[in-house]
Design a protein around this nucleic acid. Sequence first.
DNA 1: CGGGCTGTTGAGAGCTTTCAAACCCTGTGG
DNA 2: CCACAGGGTTTGAAAGCTCTCAACAGCCCG
Lengths: 242, 242
Amino acid sequence: MPIQCESCPLRRLPVFDPMTPEEVAFTQRFKVGEMVVDAGSVVMQEGLGSSQLFTVLEGLGLRYKTLPDGQRQIISFVMPGDFIGLQSAVMEDMGHSFRATTRMRLCVFDKRRLWTLFESHPDRAFDLTWLAADEERFLGETLASLGQRPAATRMAWLLLHLYRRGRELGLTDGATMPLPYRQQDMADALGLSLVHTNKTLARLREGGVVNWQDGILTVPDAGALARAANADPSEVRHRPLI
Amino acid sequence: MPIQCESCPLRRLPVFDPMTPEEVAFTQRFKVGEMVVDAGSVVMQEGLGSSQLFTVLEGLGLRYKTLPDGQRQIISFVMPGDFIGLQSAVMEDMGHSFRATTRMRLCVFDKRRLWTLFESHPDRAFDLTWLAADEERFLGETLASLGQRPAATRMAWLLLHLYRRGRELGLTDGATMPLPYRQQDMADALGLSLVHTNKTLARLREGGVVNWQDGILTVPDAGALARAANADPSEVRHRPLI
DNA sequence: CGGGCTGTTGAGAGCTTTCAAACCCTGTGG
DNA sequence: CCACAGGGTTTGAAAGCTCTCAACAGCCCG
């Protein structure tokens, strides 16, 4: 039984901008249905188009690019509330793939109706653009991390980022949150080898800054982690939900 | 004397999508004026808002982020036709700074009128979203380069990218084009030290793959460069011009 | 019980950085 | 006309970070 937008649990989270009843109703009409995918499913393929767009309701996934020689670069870690497929919506095809890491529940939208969104709901079109711009901002930060920070700092930065996002979404339980990715995922996100990722992780763990083991992330002191990450202080940004 | 959108030389380039006379007229109304900035001017500051948006008419610039410890990461090399300031348009502030490398001529738009664009010109709003999505795609590719490729490949990839863009814009003269950046800029874009950038550049030059000296980029064989960059074959993407 | 996936560890090789110094060119002032 | 300072580019060499190679432990599953 698909969730009604009106009673969508995500909408109640304070990270997301409030919506008017009219906006909720429109989103409901825009929504085609729901889709549950198993862990490991590739939902969108780089280079291919898609007639569907998604908002993540539950579960975790990865967006990644594959290079001609087979290397993989993780673009982002996908969490509930994320809107997936904007690229295929406005251009012909996707610049990256999207794969479910855990079983996921996705809200499905029809790409062909996107135009009516732009025509009749400029506020929602604006939200869409906002999301794209926010994505650009985040990728800029990621770029700065990969380009300018050493391995340990980079890793601390990423774990801090994931922890902050998890907290916004109510995925945390005190200082811990589930984070069921593999070390190889982290390595491919940070541009490090698996071995070095493992050793860097061990050093952070020994330093007591952060611990990520058995799929559980533990951040005893977010401030200490932020210092290790050489990061600016936290700042919760509210964002639209599609 | 500011250029009239109707006779804007950029619009005539085949890379840019054709516009209807009505769209041209609207863009003209959206345009507030023009601005010429000297080489070295910082036009937009990371973290600050801006009431203005720009489209580059002439000249080259850089978008970059500065980390808390002073390191700099170049986000992109800015060329004519690029739309600058989308982030400050839809969010409060910019996630990066923008600085002119050469003297630049900029088309100036008023951020406060952006909303009318979304309200009354859904096609242009769509174009704006398209640009944001394209930026996201490009940053994803950049991320993959920084994360997964060794220095020489990375550098070849970037020079190839710049050459292709220059060619689309008619900046090339046969196998050469002006590229008046510093080696330090290239280093900060690729996440390499200045010294290593210099040596890598020298090796590419000796290999005859590409030459970039005295502000002039020379690509004797684009195919060979693409192979050195481990890049997919060229593919000109048409894009909207704001 | 064997195979496959994930995580861990040790060690040497290799790529990149940092440190230092020199070179070229240009603009400035004596 | 020459000395000098400053920005950008080159070079050499040593230090350091990260990678690759190899091997092993733990776990789940057929």
